[in-house]
Nucleic acid binder design. Structure first.
Lengths: 150, 150
DNA sequence: CACTCTGAGTTCCTTAAGGGAACTCCAATT
DNA sequence: AATTGGAGTTCCCTTAAGGAACTCAGAGTG
């Protein structure tokens, strides 16, 4: 279905969508993150079509988010997050946080996160990298940056 | 194309994708956030098909992320973020941060963010809501929560 | 050595979603 | 009475997602 190319917009949100915005991509990263890292495991866990899984994995590798690693003499391999990909997990944690808060309903969150540093069940909180104070929708002004469109 | 329903998975990431995972939805929220809030403005700014824009706006309203507000006696209205929607802007800021870091290239980031509290150009940083220490991919263990699948 | 198993994809077909342009509707203005 | 402008609808075409069956190569088994 001729899809618009978000990657060429002068917007980091649009460009990020170009990398992981297709259906299933964030869930593939989530699975790889928690250790589900082989083709058939991913296919079975997600219930995704093998065809689409192949397309997504290739795209994520092209984008430098995943790497293919052989684990046998046979043509067998597993997928791993690159550094670039591991930093996308931040995005997944924020997604999970919002979903836990607004969509979990009576049953409560499906997954809890224990923070290594303090050992507590917790969730992420957005802070200013500069002053450490909370940083949310109403706390900032967007300004044109050096890479702004002409 | 018959698309999988992510909203029924026992995963807050999948459920969040069900709300804003369709193509264009995050960009619509970004625009509404920065004040582009009427149908024709959105259509012109994004270059999205009017048909798809209608579908996305209706879906975002159904999900409680946007609200329609009349601004005239005529049938004219603008879209606004609800509280639920404003909290999604956190997600957009994290997306923008990742895109700025990994995809901006030579030109640099297209948009800069000034933090009200400190007045500096900055970006978001993920911290543990409990202890305040950094919280990234490798800093947590996922555990089954009360809403986990049976 | 033939047979089977398994991981990792391909191929093919059907259905439905995105793009684009033209069309509709309605209240206010000229 | 005619025009304008915001806010959608409608229609057609193309292409992507689902799903099931098929392929392929190397290992293990009898």
């Amino acid at each position: 279905m001729q899809r618009t190319n978000f990657g060429e917009m002068a917007c980091s949100i649009a460009r990020t969508i170009d990398v992981i915005g297709e259906p299933w991509s964030p869930l593939i990263l989530r699975d790889v993150w928690v250790g589900i890292s082989r083709f058939d495991q991913l296919q079975a866990d997600l219930g995704i079509s093998r065809k689409v899984l192949t397309e997504r994995l290739n795209h994520l590798i092209d984008q430098g988010v995943l790497e293919r690693h052989p684990y046998d003499n046979r043509p067998r391999h597993e997928y791993r997050l690159t550094t670039k990909g591991a930093e996308l997990v931040d995005l997944l944690m924020v997604m999970a946080g919002w979903g836990d808060r607004w969509l979990a309903g009576e049953a409560g969150p499906p997954v809890l996160y224990r923070h290594h540093a303090c050992g507590e069940i917790s969730h992420v909180d957005l802070r200013c990298a500069h002053c450490g104070e909370p940083m949310h929708a109403g706390d900032i002004d967007p300004l044109p940056g050096p890479g702004a469109a002409v």
